[in-house]
Amino acid sequence: MKIRVRIKTVNLRNIEFLIEEAFTGIVRNGLMAFASISTIALSLAVLGAFVLAMMGANHFTTEQIDRFEIAVFTVPGAAKAKADALADSIRKIEGIKDVSILDRDEEYAKFKRERPDFESAGLLGNPLPYALRVRIVKADQLTMLSTKIRALADVDHVNVGQETYKRVVALANAIRAISFAGVIILLITTAFIISNAIRLTLYARRREIRIMQLVGATNHTIRTPLVIEGIVFGSAGALVAWILLRLGGGYVVHSAQRITPMFGSFSSGLSGAGLAFWLLLAGAVIGAIGSLVSIRRFLKD
């Protein structure tokens, strides 16, 4: 009972001392701190770059899928009123984002510009039916909605680009699966590299840990500053990784956009602050767990 009371008193009084010990340790073991922080920074930067690239790829493919539209053509000779009525009917279907009727004359002018031979064939008037551009909410409902539209009155033809759509969806699914597996593997590898870096830092200080034990420091007194150190190393590494990713990521996306304008919309969808938050969280958690696990080995009496 007497010992229990003593431990409690030490805990409360020593918080300041333990934090002080952690920062003194970091400053006095500068080289090891640098080695740890740079290893953590590079590991997190590689992990972060991979996650961002995968998020970007997912975002990009999802966006491409969302761009799929359904083209609906009225029966030849249908009047504008019928096209309007058809548009209204389509809008009522659940899952439709919006419907627009293309300007028939404008489309014909465009067609004539592209195929001047039709003009020479002596066609009279505008032979084109009304065309409706239908955008949907969920890309995976494309087939189902096109079937419903096809069943409506005055619909002559519905074009969904089914084959292209299927290929893009398959590609998106493959990217998702690969990125998920990749992130898991890279996460395990990063955790392993970081905990090894921390273990090496502690190994270099094993003599110090031993002396602490011999002067009567409890495991708690030895462990706490070292865990704080691990959190500081992890967070500092995350901060460096964030800077690397912001600078490097911006450059890569900018270059890609210059080469292929299609990548104009390439973005992970994660803000700078969001990225910093997740990196700091990952760094701090991996740092704390890495330290805790590594210290256990040195504290075995």
Binding site: I3, R28, R207, E208, L214, T218, N219
Partner: peptide
């Protein structure tokens, strides 16, 4: 008990041949 060992060591002073001083302090 192992948890009581630090409290025993606080009652003893130990001097070693290799001094065992904390090098960073």
């Amino acid at each position: 008990k192992p948890s009581a060992v630090p409290f025993l060591r606080r009652k003893l002073g130990v001097v070693y041949q290799d001094f065992k001083l904390l090098p960073q302090k």
